[in-house]
Protein backbone atom coordinates (compact mmCIF):
# COMPACT_ATOMS: atom_id res chain seq x y z
CA UNK A 1 0.00 0.00 0.00
CA UNK A 2 3.00 2.28 -0.37
CA UNK A 3 1.36 3.67 -3.49
CA UNK A 4 -1.48 5.11 -1.45
CA UNK A 5 -1.52 7.45 1.49
CA UNK A 6 -3.04 6.05 4.65
CA UNK A 7 -6.23 8.03 4.08
CA UNK A 8 -6.62 6.70 0.54
CA UNK A 9 -5.93 3.16 1.69
CA UNK A 10 -8.71 3.52 4.26
CA UNK A 11 -11.07 4.50 1.45
CA UNK A 12 -10.52 1.06 -0.01
CA UNK A 13 -10.21 -1.04 3.13
CA UNK A 14 -13.13 0.39 5.10
CA UNK A 15 -15.91 -0.70 2.74
CA UNK A 16 -14.40 -4.18 2.56
CA UNK A 17 -15.16 -4.82 6.21
CA UNK A 18 -16.33 -2.35 8.85
CA UNK A 19 -18.30 -0.14 6.48
CA UNK A 20 -19.37 -2.75 3.93
CA UNK A 21 -22.14 -1.45 1.67
CA UNK A 22 -24.15 -4.67 1.88
CA UNK A 23 -23.63 -6.04 5.37
CA UNK A 24 -23.31 -2.77 7.28
CA UNK A 25 -25.11 -0.13 5.22
CA UNK A 26 -27.55 -2.72 3.78
CA UNK A 27 -27.45 -1.21 0.29
CA UNK A 28 -27.53 -3.10 -3.00
CA UNK A 29 -29.38 -6.04 -1.45
CA UNK A 30 -31.68 -6.35 -4.47
CA UNK A 31 -29.00 -7.37 -6.93
CA UNK A 32 -27.25 -9.45 -4.27
CA UNK A 33 -30.39 -11.59 -4.12
CA UNK A 34 -31.11 -11.73 -7.81
CA UNK A 35 -27.88 -12.84 -9.39
CA UNK A 36 -25.94 -14.86 -6.83
CA UNK A 37 -27.25 -18.32 -7.76
CA UNK A 38 -24.02 -18.81 -9.71
CA UNK A 39 -20.46 -17.86 -8.82
CA UNK A 40 -19.65 -16.77 -12.37
CA UNK A 41 -22.54 -14.32 -12.53
CA UNK A 42 -21.50 -12.90 -9.16
CA UNK A 43 -17.94 -12.30 -10.35
CA UNK A 44 -19.04 -10.69 -13.61
CA UNK A 45 -21.46 -8.43 -11.76
CA UNK A 46 -18.80 -7.50 -9.20
CA UNK A 47 -16.32 -6.50 -11.92
CA UNK A 48 -18.93 -4.49 -13.81
CA UNK A 49 -19.89 -2.57 -10.70
CA UNK A 50 -16.21 -1.86 -9.88
CA UNK A 51 -15.78 -0.32 -13.31
CA UNK A 52 -19.01 1.69 -13.38
CA UNK A 53 -18.72 2.96 -9.80
CA UNK A 54 -15.06 4.00 -10.11
CA UNK A 55 -15.62 5.78 -13.43
CA UNK A 56 -18.90 7.32 -12.36
CA UNK A 57 -17.44 8.58 -9.10
CA UNK A 58 -14.61 10.29 -11.02
CA UNK A 59 -16.99 11.90 -13.54
CA UNK A 60 -19.37 13.15 -10.85
CA UNK A 61 -16.47 14.38 -8.73
CA UNK A 62 -15.04 16.35 -11.66
CA UNK A 63 -18.43 17.96 -12.25
CA UNK A 64 -19.25 18.45 -8.56
CA UNK A 65 -18.86 22.23 -8.64
CA UNK A 66 -20.97 22.83 -11.71
CA UNK A 67 -23.86 20.41 -11.13
CA UNK A 68 -27.04 22.36 -10.26
CA UNK A 69 -28.15 20.97 -6.90
CA UNK A 70 -31.81 20.88 -7.96
CA UNK A 71 -31.24 18.28 -10.65
CA UNK A 72 -28.20 16.51 -9.24
CA UNK A 73 -29.97 13.14 -8.93
CA UNK A 74 -30.99 13.29 -12.59
CA UNK A 75 -27.45 14.22 -13.58
CA UNK A 76 -26.13 11.26 -11.60
CA UNK A 77 -28.60 8.91 -13.27
CA UNK A 78 -27.65 10.16 -16.72
CA UNK A 79 -23.96 9.63 -15.97
CA UNK A 80 -24.47 6.02 -14.80
CA UNK A 81 -26.82 5.23 -17.66
CA UNK A 82 -24.46 6.68 -20.27
CA UNK A 83 -21.46 4.83 -18.82
CA UNK A 84 -23.32 1.55 -18.73
CA UNK A 85 -24.54 1.91 -22.32
CA UNK A 86 -21.05 2.74 -23.55
CA UNK A 87 -19.57 -0.27 -21.73
CA UNK A 88 -22.31 -2.49 -23.14
CA UNK A 89 -21.77 -1.29 -26.72
CA UNK A 90 -17.99 -1.62 -26.55
CA UNK A 91 -18.30 -5.15 -25.18
CA UNK A 92 -20.81 -6.09 -27.88
CA UNK A 93 -18.40 -4.89 -30.56
CA UNK A 94 -15.16 -6.33 -29.19
CA UNK A 95 -16.01 -9.02 -26.64
CA UNK A 96 -19.32 -10.39 -27.82
CA UNK A 97 -19.30 -13.53 -25.67
CA UNK A 98 -18.68 -11.55 -22.50
CA UNK A 99 -21.38 -9.05 -23.39
CA UNK A 100 -23.91 -11.86 -23.59
CA UNK A 101 -23.09 -13.02 -20.06
CA UNK A 102 -23.28 -9.45 -18.88
CA UNK A 103 -26.40 -8.27 -20.66
CA UNK A 104 -28.76 -9.27 -17.86
CA UNK A 105 -26.89 -7.20 -15.32
CA UNK A 106 -26.66 -3.94 -17.23
CA UNK A 107 -30.10 -2.82 -16.11
CA UNK A 108 -29.35 -3.93 -12.59
CA UNK A 109 -26.19 -1.84 -12.43
CA UNK A 110 -28.13 1.34 -13.13
CA UNK A 111 -30.62 0.64 -10.37
CA UNK A 112 -27.96 -0.38 -7.84
CA UNK A 113 -28.42 1.89 -4.84
CA UNK A 114 -24.72 1.70 -3.93
CA UNK A 115 -23.85 3.66 -7.06
CA UNK A 116 -26.27 6.50 -6.43
CA UNK A 117 -25.39 6.36 -2.75
CA UNK A 118 -21.67 6.87 -3.34
CA UNK A 119 -22.25 9.63 -5.91
CA UNK A 120 -24.46 11.46 -3.47
CA UNK A 121 -22.49 10.82 -0.30
CA UNK A 122 -18.90 10.95 -1.53
CA UNK A 123 -18.25 12.06 -5.10
CA UNK A 124 -20.20 15.32 -4.74
CA UNK A 125 -17.97 16.37 -1.86
CA UNK A 126 -14.51 15.03 -2.74
CA UNK A 127 -11.83 15.32 -5.42
CA UNK A 128 -11.60 12.87 -8.33
CA UNK A 129 -8.65 10.88 -6.94
CA UNK A 130 -10.27 10.17 -3.61
CA UNK A 131 -13.58 9.54 -5.36
CA UNK A 132 -11.89 6.96 -7.59
CA UNK A 133 -10.49 5.01 -4.63
CA UNK A 134 -13.80 5.29 -2.83
CA UNK A 135 -15.56 3.84 -5.88
CA UNK A 136 -13.10 0.95 -6.11
CA UNK A 137 -13.39 0.26 -2.38
CA UNK A 138 -17.16 0.29 -2.18
CA UNK A 139 -17.65 -1.74 -5.34
CA UNK A 140 -15.08 -4.25 -4.08
CA UNK A 141 -16.86 -4.48 -0.74
CA UNK A 142 -20.08 -5.13 -2.60
CA UNK A 143 -18.42 -7.63 -4.93
CA UNK A 144 -16.78 -9.49 -2.06
CA UNK A 145 -20.15 -10.25 -0.44
CA UNK A 146 -21.64 -11.15 -3.83
CA UNK A 147 -18.84 -13.63 -4.47
CA UNK A 148 -19.10 -15.19 -0.99
CA UNK A 149 -22.87 -15.60 -1.38
CA UNK A 150 -22.50 -16.88 -4.95
CA UNK A 151 -19.87 -19.40 -3.82
CA UNK A 152 -22.09 -20.97 -1.16
CA UNK A 153 -25.28 -20.86 -3.21
CA UNK A 154 -23.75 -22.53 -6.25
CA UNK A 155 -21.77 -25.06 -4.19
CA UNK A 156 -24.67 -26.15 -1.98
CA UNK A 157 -27.44 -25.60 -4.51
CA UNK A 158 -25.99 -27.10 -7.68
CA UNK A 159 -22.86 -28.87 -6.41
CA UNK A 160 -20.79 -26.92 -8.92
CA UNK A 161 -18.39 -23.96 -8.91
CA UNK A 162 -18.04 -21.84 -12.05
CA UNK A 163 -19.93 -24.66 -13.77
CA UNK A 164 -17.44 -27.38 -12.76
CA UNK A 165 -18.89 -30.35 -10.92
CA UNK A 166 -16.73 -30.17 -7.80
CA UNK A 167 -18.81 -32.56 -5.71
CA UNK A 168 -19.29 -35.26 -8.35
CA UNK A 169 -22.20 -35.97 -10.66
CA UNK A 170 -25.67 -35.98 -9.05
CA UNK A 171 -27.27 -38.01 -11.85
CA UNK A 172 -24.75 -40.80 -12.25
CA UNK A 173 -24.06 -40.71 -8.48
CA UNK A 174 -20.31 -40.23 -8.32
CA UNK A 175 -18.15 -38.42 -5.77
CA UNK A 176 -20.04 -37.15 -2.74
CA UNK A 177 -23.36 -38.14 -4.27
CA UNK A 178 -22.38 -41.81 -4.04
CA UNK A 179 -22.54 -41.38 -0.24
CA UNK A 180 -26.14 -40.20 -0.38
CA UNK A 181 -25.49 -36.43 -0.51
CA UNK A 182 -28.18 -34.35 -2.20
CA UNK A 183 -28.09 -30.81 -3.58
CA UNK A 184 -30.23 -28.35 -1.68
CA UNK A 185 -32.42 -26.81 -4.37
CA UNK A 186 -33.62 -24.18 -1.92
CA UNK A 187 -30.16 -22.59 -2.05
CA UNK A 188 -30.89 -21.52 -5.63
CA UNK A 189 -33.93 -19.48 -4.65
CA UNK A 190 -33.74 -15.84 -3.58
CA UNK A 191 -34.72 -16.34 0.10
CA UNK A 192 -31.53 -18.31 0.72
CA UNK A 193 -29.44 -15.39 -0.51
CA UNK A 194 -31.05 -13.27 2.19
CA UNK A 195 -30.34 -15.94 4.81
CA UNK A 196 -26.71 -16.29 3.68
CA UNK A 197 -26.27 -12.52 3.85
CA UNK A 198 -27.88 -12.59 7.29
CA UNK A 199 -25.36 -15.19 8.45
CA UNK A 200 -22.50 -13.07 7.11
CA UNK A 201 -23.84 -10.03 9.00
CA UNK A 202 -24.17 -12.15 12.14
CA UNK A 203 -20.59 -13.41 11.94
CA UNK A 204 -19.29 -9.93 11.18
CA UNK A 205 -21.11 -8.34 14.10
CA UNK A 206 -20.15 -11.02 16.57
CA UNK A 207 -16.49 -10.48 15.67
CA UNK A 208 -16.74 -6.71 15.85
CA UNK A 209 -19.08 -5.53 18.63
CA UNK A 210 -18.55 -1.90 17.58
CA UNK A 211 -20.97 -2.53 14.71
CA UNK A 212 -23.86 -3.38 17.00
CA UNK A 213 -26.18 -0.43 17.47
CA UNK A 214 -27.46 0.43 20.92
CA UNK A 215 -31.19 0.76 21.18
Amino acid sequence: MALLSKKDANLIMDPLADNNPITVQVLGICSALAITAELKASIVMALSVVFVLAMGNVVISLMRNIIPSKIRIIVQLVVVAALVIIVDQVLKAFAYELSKTLSVFVGLIITNCIIMGRFEAFALANGPKRAFWDGIGNAAGYGLILIIVGFFRELLGSGTLMGFKVLGDPITKTGLYALGYENNGFMLLAPMALIVIGIIIWIQRSRNPALIEEN
Partner: peptide, 14 residues
Protein backbone atom coordinates in the same frame (compact mmCIF):
# COMPACT_ATOMS: atom_id res chain seq x y z
CA UNK B 1 -18.20 31.98 -9.00
CA UNK B 2 -21.22 30.45 -10.72
CA UNK B 3 -24.53 30.43 -8.88
CA UNK B 4 -25.65 26.88 -9.52
CA UNK B 5 -29.04 27.46 -7.89
CA UNK B 6 -30.40 29.77 -10.59
CA UNK B 7 -33.21 28.36 -12.71
CA UNK B 8 -31.66 29.54 -15.95
CA UNK B 9 -28.38 27.84 -15.07
CA UNK B 10 -30.21 24.61 -14.28
CA UNK B 11 -32.04 24.62 -17.59
CA UNK B 12 -28.93 25.46 -19.60
CA UNK B 13 -26.93 22.80 -17.76
CA UNK B 14 -29.60 20.18 -18.41
Amino acid sequence: AINTDKNLYTVVFA
